[in-house]
């Protein structure tokens, strides 16, 4: 029980709070960028998977299986370390000596966005399929083309329906930004690790980190619930 007498949360909190705050800003930046990318991708993938083009559907399915069949952490590492190498290799055919580098945060945003985009695409696809066929027919009868009906009548309803699920994924993504520590993004976990290893205030540091994430995600889940209520008003 020796260790309990030496717990020093006050010191740890004082030193960590500004660090965590800065880390949080980076985490939010990653989430914002990653989620925006994920939403756009998810709609495009969902529409692609519902299209008439067999080849496109097949390619997308393979892509989805690859993303869903590998861990997010591996994808992030791949995006940060391998993808720039591959790009450099290809470009070197044209420009000898070219070295492509990816900023860690950008790599993180791309990795998170693609991974979440794939999972969200299933949500969007299900939502599109759940919209009554009469909606499309009404639009067609008014002179819309299929594409116009899809984008201006069906997708707005489908995304609206998917918003609550999106909200839950958003909260998951905020927590998953901690994985970006492994590709040197200076977010909360990496900063906490650095502090803990310098001071040996291990218990304090990681407990504070965990609480910080909780403080972040609890009000957000509440907000998602409220949003869900509001949106279900006119469906």
């Amino acid at each position: 029980m020796e260790i309990l007498n030496h717990l020093d949360f006050a010191t740890a909190l004082k030193a960590l709070a500004p660090e965590l705050w800065q880390g949080l800003m980076i985490a939010l930046e990653a989430t914002l960028g990653g989620f925006l990318l994920a939403v756009i991708l998810s709609i495009l993938i969902a529409v692609g998977r519902l299209s008439h083009y067999k080849i496109l559907r097949g390619l997308l399915l393979v892509f989805l299986e690859v993303i869903r069949g590998t861990p997010l952490l591996v994808q992030l590492v791949y995006m940060f370390y391998v993808v720039p190498l591959l790009i450099s290799l290809v470009v070197q055919f044209f420009i000898p000596g070219y070295q492509f580098q990816l900023n860690p945060l950008v790599a993180g945003i791309l990795g998170l966005g693609i991974n979440y985009g794939c999972y969200l695409s299933e949500v969007v696809r299900a939502a599109i399929l759940s919209i009554d066929k009469g909606q499309t027919e009404a639009a067609l009868a008014l002179g819309y083309t299929h594409r116009q009906a899809l984008w201006s009548i069906v997708i707005p309803q489908a995304t609206r329906q998917a918003v609550p699920v999106f909200g839950n994924y958003l909260i998951m993504m905020i927590k998953d930004t901690s994985l970006l520590a492994f590709i040197t993004v200076n977010e909360l976990l990496l900063r906490t690790q650095a502090y803990a290893s310098q001071t040996f205030l291990t218990i304090e540091s990681y407990t504070i980190l965990a609480v910080a994430y909780l403080i972040l995600s609890l009000p957000l889940s509440q907000a998602v619930r409220l949003l869900e209520k509001r949106l279900s008003k006119h469906v």
């Binding site: 002179g143 299929h146 309803q157």
Partner: peptide
Amino acid sequence: EKRVAKLRTEIGMVFQSFNLFPM
């Protein structure tokens, strides 16, 4: 598609299930 859509604008249709746009 475009030709069909254009001709459809000359014809209004009312459905059994209304099919109003809920949003």
